[in-house]
Every structure is written in C-alpha cells, then in structure tokens.
C-alpha cells in the first residue's frame, strides 16, 4: 500500500468544513459575511486541490491551486471596493 492512501481519512474533514462554509455563505445575513465565507471556502478548496494532486498522483495539475488563491483574493478586493462606495477606479 502506498503512503498516500492514508490521506483518505483526512479528506472527509475538509469536506465537512467546506460544507459548513457554504451554509454560512448561503445563510449570511449581510454581504461581508458571504464574502468572508467564500474566502474561507476558496482557501480550503485550494488546500483540497493540493491534497488531491498528491492523492491522485498527478503532480502536473498543481498550478490550479495558485491561480485559485490569487483570484479569491481578487474577489475580496472587488467586494471591499464595492462596499467602500467610492468610484471603482479611484
């Protein structure tokens, strides 16, 4: 048995965490709550992508995690710029 098979025990915990973030994102009374949970959701998904890259033994697909991290941050920036109620370009 290969060493990565033990990862099977850890992946369900990450899934439970992700589902809890989704519950908060869909429930979230205000917009900042939703954005914050999407934040956590995106970073947890980035971790899950790296774990699956090891788990499925396909190292070449790792670049997706980097790109996901970057764009989740960009979503944060857009939403806080929107909430600040200024012109978007200033």
């Amino acid at each position: 048995m290969m060493i990565v098979e033990y990862l099977t025990f850890f992946i369900p915990f990450y899934l439970i965490g992700i589902i809890m973030y989704v519950v908060r994102a869909l429930k979230g009374p205000t917009i900042p709550d939703t954005v914050l949970s999407i934040d956590c959701l995106g970073y947890a998904l980035a971790a899950l992508l790296v774990i699956f890259s090891v788990y499925l033994q396909s190292p070449l697909i790792i670049a997706c995690a980097i790109v996901l991290t970057l764009w989740i941050y960009a979503l944060d920036v857009y939403m806080s710029k929107y909430l600040e109620k200024k012109e978007l370009g200033e």
Binding site: L26, V35, G42, F52, S58, M79
Partner: peptide
C-alpha cells in the same frame, strides 16, 4: 456571490475529472 460559489465548486469538479 452565489454564482462565484458555484464556479469554485465547478473548478473542483473539473480538477477531479483531470482537465487542469
């Protein structure tokens, strides 16, 4: 924002189906 949630999950599905 809800459609952004859907997009992140679809990214995971595409990733598991091995289309990086």
């Amino acid at each position: 924002l809800y459609s952004a949630i859907q997009s992140t999950f679809y990214a995971l599905i595409f990733y598991l189906l091995m289309v990086p």
